[in-house]
């Protein structure tokens, strides 16, 4: 299995541990990732809030670069994933947009590379094969899987799992020996970049998510998006100060938990760079 890898801007900085654990896990599972040479930013929410054409033209450059590699694209960041998928659909179905994008990029787009979320890529492995690789099952760990918005919405764009009650990550956690708890906030919004531009809103949204996770009896939250992880993990001190709560909920990437179950050393999975310590979770991998 070979993919063109589009890490996105966060995975080269604030979400380094997602990049690290992704590379470790994929290498252990025989998924070859080749980083797209000279990839550029997808434009994220700021682009589609500013110009529709810009929001398609920026991802188009990356789609073209991956197309030249002759590989499908694996995208760990939920926001990048949704923006690349959206651009691809627009370019395929909207001739007017396709022509304009060709004019502004100077390149004619050809649909060659399919865009897949990293979650989808890992979940596409034969479950028996994955189970055969587990050497340190996460027995007794109670996890709540948090998908956030952009992996599953809108379904017209993403469409690989149920938008209200997705199961892909839950099944992976079960394969690793953990208990994936049923809970109601799997796809609630964390406020995304409003953590920076309007923090009060993000604090309220994340407080609600943490509260429901705690009520469900979770030992940790499992994330698949760098911005979700950052809001859920690094803002807990601010939340506790604002609401008088006492949250200390570890928030791990699904790749970090799979990595632990595969027997990869915690240090190589970036497990020491979280705001809420993950040591209590690492202990479950026996």
């Amino acid at each position: 299995m070979k993919y063109a890898y589009y890490p996105g801007c966060s995975l080269h900085a604030t979400a380094r541990e997602y990049d690290q654990s992704t590379r470790e896990v994929c290498s252990a599972l025989g998924i070859e990732l080749i980083e797209i040479p000279d990839w550029s930013c997808c434009g994220a929410t700021s682009a589609h809030s500013t110009s529709h054409l810009l929001s398609v033209a920026l991802p188009a450059r990356n789609l073209t670069l991956a197309g030249k590699m002759g590989l499908d694209i694996a995208v760990p960041c939920a926001a990048c994933y949704q923006r690349l998928r959206y651009a691809q659909i627009e370019l395929d179905q909207n001739e007017g947009v396709r022509e304009k994008v060709a004019a502004v990029t100077g390149t004619v787009y050809e649909n060659k590379a399919d865009v897949k979320s990293l979650l989808e890529v890992v979940a596409s492995l034969d479950p028996e094969y994955l189970k055969s690789k587990i050497v340190r099952p996460l027995d007794g760990l109670k996890a709540v899987c948090y998908y956030g918005c952009l992996l599953v919405r809108p379904p017209r764009v993403t469409g690989f799992d149920d938008p209200e009650d997705p199961q892909t990550m839950d099944n992976l956690m079960r394969a690793c020996g953990a208990e994936a708890l049923d809970w109601g906030y799997k796809t609630e919004c964390c406020g995304a970049s409003m953590g920076i531009s309007n923090e009060a809103i993000t604090l309220k949204l994340v407080r609600d998510i943490l509260q429901v996770a705690e009520k469900a009896g979770a030992d940790c939250l499992v994330a698949a998006c760098p911005l979700c992880q950052s809001n859920l993990d690094s803002r807990q001190t601010h939340i506790n100060r604002a609401f008088g709560t006492g949250f200390k909920m570890p928030v791990l990437y699904f790749t970090q938990l799979i990595g632990l179950a595969l027997g990869i050393e915690p240090a190589r999975l970036g497990l020491k760079s979280h705001f809420v310590a993950t040591a209590g979770i690492v202990k479950f991998a026996t």
Binding site: C9, A13, S40, C41, A44, S46, S49, S193, M194, S197
Partner: peptide
């Protein structure tokens, strides 16, 4: 929020990637 979008896109334009 509008300012955030401007600063974010300014970074993309200048470097090709966002400098967080």
């Amino acid at each position: 929020i509008d300012l955030f979008n401007d600063v974010f896109l300014g970074s993309v334009r200048k470097y090709g990637r966002v400098h967080e």
